[in-house]
């Protein structure tokens, strides 16, 4: 085999797969942001040298396959219970790095009790929360984050607040709890957003490393398949109506630990 073009001149690798990202093809649909978010998480694990002391907690939904893609120990949790499982891991192994990776149905519907109380206790965990406004794995049903008017397989006429309630803003809600150390909402629909979201995950991880309490990063993500959109159009939706309702930003950032 001949060397790739330019190999002689361009030999410094400036982007390769993060060490903590398993070198396999993912099962995610084309344009799904789960892959992008996995990469960011893996990069941040690498950055702080956490791979060998990390225990990830996978939830139920498309994100359960975390254990196939992130090269760390992973325990599977029942639907919505990841913050409780992570609490059990962290209390048993306080010196380890523990994060959950949860979708919106998982964290913002069935698992609201577990995330609110883990945050309120100030559990020293990091939470990666993927909000794509739908239940992806089960076929695109209404999620707690589904936008008003959005058609899903269980809101065939569009989500109506009069019967279905409103899309829930978790990053803001959790920022209101004393135990939450860090809460931010980010997106990965532009290169600039990707860089910003990395900063947020780094901050979240640093919170845990410094023993500050629960940190959460909410990602606005696409689900092109269940939205019935091309990936580029799905990204436009994130940049448009989704970001209008779910504003990007940092809602809480603790500067000093409450407990020594």
């Amino acid at each position: 085999m001949s060397a790739p073009p330019g190999k002689a001149r361009f030999s410094k690798a400036v982007y390769a797969r993060p060490r903590s990202l398993v070198d396999v093809k993912s099962h995610f649909c084309p344009g799904c942001h789960h892959g992008t978010i996995h990469k960011i998480v893996a990069e941040c694990i690498d950055r702080y040298g956490l791979r060998e002391k990390t225990i990830g907690v996978a939830c139920v939904g498309c994100s359960v396959f975390l254990y196939d893609y992130i090269d760390v120990d992973v325990v599977e949790s029942p639907h919505g219970r990841a913050p409780a499982v992570a609490t059990g891991v962290k209390r048993a192994q306080p010196d380890k790095f523990v994060f959950t990776y949860q979708g919106d149905g998982d964290l913002a519907a069935i698992g609201t009790s577990e995330i609110i109380h883990a945050a309120n206790r100030g559990e020293n965990l990091s939470v990666i929360f993927v909000n794509n406004t739908t239940y992806g794995m089960t076929g695109g049903q209404m999620a707690p984050t589904t936008m008003l008017g959005q058609k899903t397989s269980t809101t065939p006429y569009g989500r109506d607040f009069r019967g279905d309630g409103y899309p829930i803003r978790m990053a803001e809600l959790l920022a209101g709890l004393e135990g939450t150390a860090y809460s931010a909402r980010v997106a990965v629909s532009t290169p600039a957003q990707i860089r910003k979201s990395k900063e947020a995950v780094r901050k979240a991880f640093e919170m845990q490393i410094n023993g500050m309490g629960l940190s959460i990063v909410e990602f606005l993500s696409t689900c092109p398949t269940n939205w019935g959109m091309k990936p580029l159009d799905a990204q436009k939706r994130v940049l448009g109506e989704m970001s209008e309702y779910f504003p990007l930003g940092v809602f809480k950032e603790r500067v000093q630990a409450d407990f020594a």
Binding site: I55, A84, G88
Partner: peptide, 25 residues
């Protein structure tokens, strides 16, 4: 560790996490 959980649902899942860590719970 003694932890009063928010529910029995959370309780059993905390146990799941601690047990997965190899500790008696």
């Amino acid at each position: 560790t003694f932890l009063q959980a928010e529910s029995e649902v959370a309780t059993i899942n905390m146990m799941l996490g601690t047990s997965a860590s190899g500790k008696r719970v």
